[in-house]
Amino acid sequence: MRFIIVSGPPSAGKTAVMVHTIKHLLKDGLKVVACKIDCLKTSDDEYYHTLGIPVAVGLSEYLCPDHFFAANLEEIYAWGINHEAEVLILETAGLCHRCAPAVQGCLSICVIDNLSGIDTPQKIGPMLSTADIVVISKGDIVSQAEREVFRQRVEMVNPDAAVLTVNGLNGQGSLKLKKIIMDSTPISEIEGKELRCSMPAAICSYCTGETMIGSKYQMGNVKKVSFGKV
């Protein structure tokens, strides 16, 4: 089974890009399943359901979504195998910009859009820099010059990735993404594979439900802002 991890900032067009790409996979008679990891609420499963494929949703709720994601990879893999899937699309959302969901051996796709601001490629850090494929969306609403400048910014952060442009509205470019997915190597298990970027430590009183403000309520791994010399 090919285990494909899709990440990207909110509203970048992850689901739209993947729905078009999955349509191409289904046309080739492949068995595809999709799983969406989100924080509190998602409606993206409805879009995947319209394709008539098995869909699973995981909501991290009171947990850090990144840790929730990593802790469930094995179960998600098993779910895909139970459905005899040939391609599993795992879409993540809610990742803070410190984390990256990429796993060694799994094709990792980062979707980012042309409207997201010139500094976004630098800001989202490891999510972009550890991706194998960067998909840039919403190119139809900006000038060619802006597309070129934005693409260069992306390539500065991740010079090794293949950069594709996909139009999430009409699917232009999604056939190329499908070909890349089919050229990726299937995996036979996910246990023992490694995250490409470690996740941040998060063991403080707020992790366990504390809501009060002030140092006297804080315990554990607490880091304070340095304001420099005043």
Binding site: G117, S143, Q144, V149, Q152
Partner: peptide, 24 residues
């Protein structure tokens, strides 16, 4: 390409943008 777009979305000055585009 000169597309139908009538506005830029990138948050840069004209000078910086043209410079970056030439560099790209």
């Amino acid at each position: 390409e000169v597309s139908q777009n009538m506005n830029f979305v990138m948050d840069l000055t004209v000078k910086d943008f043209l410079y970056l585009h030439a560099c790209s």
